[in-house]
Design a binder for these strands. Sequence first.
RNA 1: GGUCGGGUGGCCGAGUGGCUAGGCAGUGGUCUGCAAAACCAUGUACGGCGGUUCGAAUCCGCUCCCGACCUCCA
Length: 492
Amino acid sequence: MQDLYIYNSLTRKKEKFVPIYEGFVGMYICGPTVYSDVHLGNCRTFTSFDIMYRFLKYLGYKVRYVRNITDVGHLLDDGQDRISKGARQDNLEPMELVQKYMNGFHHMMRTFNNLDPDIEPRATGHIVEQIEMVQQILDNGWAYIRNGSVYFDTVKFAEVKKVYGKLSGRKIEELQAESRKLNKQDEKRHPSDFAIWMKAGQDHIMRWSSPWSEGFPGWHLECSVMSTKYLGKHFDIHGGGNDLKFPHHENEIAQNIGACDCAPANYWIHTNMLLMNGRKMSKSDGNTITPDELFTGDSPHISRAYSPMELRFFMLQTHYSSTLDLTDAGLLAAAKAYKRLMEARRALQSLQSTASNGDQDQQIKQLMQKAIDQMCDDFNTPKALAVLFELVPKINSLADGKTKMDTISQTTLEALKTFFDQMIFEIFGLEDDQLIEGNKEELQSVMKLIIDIRKQARADKNWKLSDQIRDQLAAANIQLKDGKDGTTWTIG
RNA sequence: GGUCGGGUGGCCGAGUGGCUAGGCAGUGGUCUGCAAAACCAUGUACGGCGGUUCGAAUCCGCUCCCGACCUCCA
């Protein structure tokens, strides 16, 4: 198996990936809190991890991909539970609200062609385990009880274990100064302490009995518990958006160490944020767009609709660790490049060679290997994509006869076909919009008829008719392409 | 204020101490009835100032600017 290198947020270095059990990978990704419609930024994050999941599988690993659904405990800064608040607003039972937005989330993930995780555990389904972990942390002396709530003692933990703040680069002393204004500070010994069990207020809907109070688990606890339950105390990869680095992941590590004296994951991967027009997306100042608005084009920020696959391609052009700036110009450019790649792929699949060896064989083999090498270098999709685009002109040249077919051997050609499909469909997780839309038999026969009529018109030098057919089809978003071997067509 | 990440040619976006990233747009050419598509060719690029080096966009220092996080967020 080829070596894979991953940038580890924990060590701030690119490291060779060595799984705990050879051939197996345990990967935990922090999933969404399902209290409102899925944010486009979520789509970016989970698409990034989807590509890692896909690539790990491509390399031959047996991967267990766990991604949670947060349906309790994630509080707003006024102390209200996000789910409870949403449920009140929509006049729904909390679990109804969770179901509604979870369904929406799943639908969007599939729209982007993201693979389902292998396990998708929910926080409310693991209250018992969370209570157990709170008890372990208490037993180990890393937490204290105040008025029915349980708080993690970050000061003591930091002093003894010396790891608190390692992931996020924080220091306890610095945290103190900045967090004085927060709620419930009076109950905490130190501002950086955090709740692992919260006593529920009178009007708090979501509550469970525990040894300490009727209440609910702290937000960070679910991930510690569920990663441990499904991947073990010590697993390979833990990921999430880099906005979760602090406090969520820092606290998660503290909890795991506090409970079992064992750091949860070897490799921490953080994806960067999605921006729009250079700034953070924000509902309040109108700098925002929903996935559906992108798909319909119904937004002042874009000049036309973009398909989920055009967006996925757009994401691939930027490394997961960089901010991705969504702009209309960028999307337009990506959509064209996406189309070019897909058309080259289609052209490739229809090529045939009988040669036993060819002048281009060596170079094409090197490029294929190079693309995989780039993916092995911290999942560098932009570079891998660049390699595919080095192959595109070669393929097109073969397809329209500018390069002779005997410059590529049958073996290399077949390998290239397989490689292209693996890269595009299996690893990048793209789909060919054209095949989905243009596959209908009826459309195929209608287009054949139209092209035949135009062919006759051209033979008769009836340019008026042939141009009319071409222009009106173009207006209907169908493009004709006159090649050496006749006319082909594409949508878009 | 603290932490982290950035500033690359018209736009987007990789990247490494010396070897063409790539995409989009532009220009010239081939092809075409004309186009489109495709192919070929083409661009003073690396925020600023110093330093290290035979050589730096790539390393170091300073400085300016931007973003994220530090408080709910993927």
